[in-house]
Design a protein around this nucleic acid. Structure first.
Lengths: 149, 149
DNA sequence: TATTGTTATACTCTATAACTATA
DNA sequence: TATAGTTATAGAGTATAACAATA
């Protein structure tokens, strides 16, 4: 690392700028085409992979806090894309699942998500994408480890 | 890229999660120790590198829009960290510079910024950091190219 | 007319705290 | 008492539009 500070070479800055550029584009695509916010899209993605998931587990899987999960889930239930079933083992919680409409919407979104990702990351080879994924996971783990400071 | 979508392997998701973890930690560090928001910190960093910069050029250098620059600059002027001089060549614009207090604060922040960056990215070797920097720049360029869609 | 910068406004995202209902 | 989830509120980030002053 440089001993002197230059914003242009400061990794937190580079990470933030790249992430904002990608997030802005993704969020425009989802909102315009499907009326979904990113938090809502993430819940749908997890529910398409694993059915009957509690809000707590959705929070772990999406790295979002319980407030964000609660609001996103309420919006999806309101739209009829997600249904809530009682959890017999714990009356405080419940299971969330995609409805038929939710599955149909997911079937529309998934190809769009992959296409948009493809456009944005097509400057990178398959190996470079895997490398970026691995580097980002290590940075994330390292940043979270010291988060309480 | 996988033909099927898995949130956990979706690069925009990985990028967002890593960036949020880093940004949260950095923003806590700056706010608690120096009372600065990230936008304000970025202006200080650029003004420490280049003196007498117009708001428009600050916006280019920090990748922030003119509204964000304007508000951050106003806050720094209010605190006496930044001074504005008339621009003889264009009365609509002005030059911003760090004051003595601004330079003194920068001298305190810079080592802290480098130390926090060091902690968060110490899981990566010097080469890996350079690689991450380069990959992020390419992703950014690629994401911005299609932003108008 | 076009451009630099400010102000007004609003929407999203995130975080803290208070609350409810169950355990 | 502790936990799962909701609601209330506010701070921060970002975007659009309207505006003032100057080119």
């Amino acid at each position: 690392m440089p001993a002197t500070l230059r914003l242009d070479r400061f990794l937190p800055y580079r990470l933030s700028v790249a992430s904002n550029a990608v997030s802005t584009r993704i969020s425009n695509a989802y909102r315009r085409r499907f009326g979904l916010k990113i938090a809502e899209w993430r819940l749908i993605a997890i529910l398409a992979e694993h059915d009957r998931v509690t809000p707590a587990r959705l929070g772990e899987a999406t790295r979002m806090d319980k407030i964000t999960v609660s609001r996103a889930a309420a919006a999806l239930v309101e739209r009829g894309l997600v249904a809530a079933d009682a959890n017999p083992a714990d009356g405080r919680s419940h299971f969330l699942s995609l409805t038929g409409d939710g599955r149909a919407l997911y079937a529309e979104i998934a190809p769009v998500a992959l296409a948009v990702e493809g456009e944005m990351f097509d400057a990178l080879s398959r190996d470079e994408r895997a490398l970026l994924d691995a580097l980002l996971r290590r940075v994330e783990a390292s940043a979270m480890r010291g988060e309480q400071e």
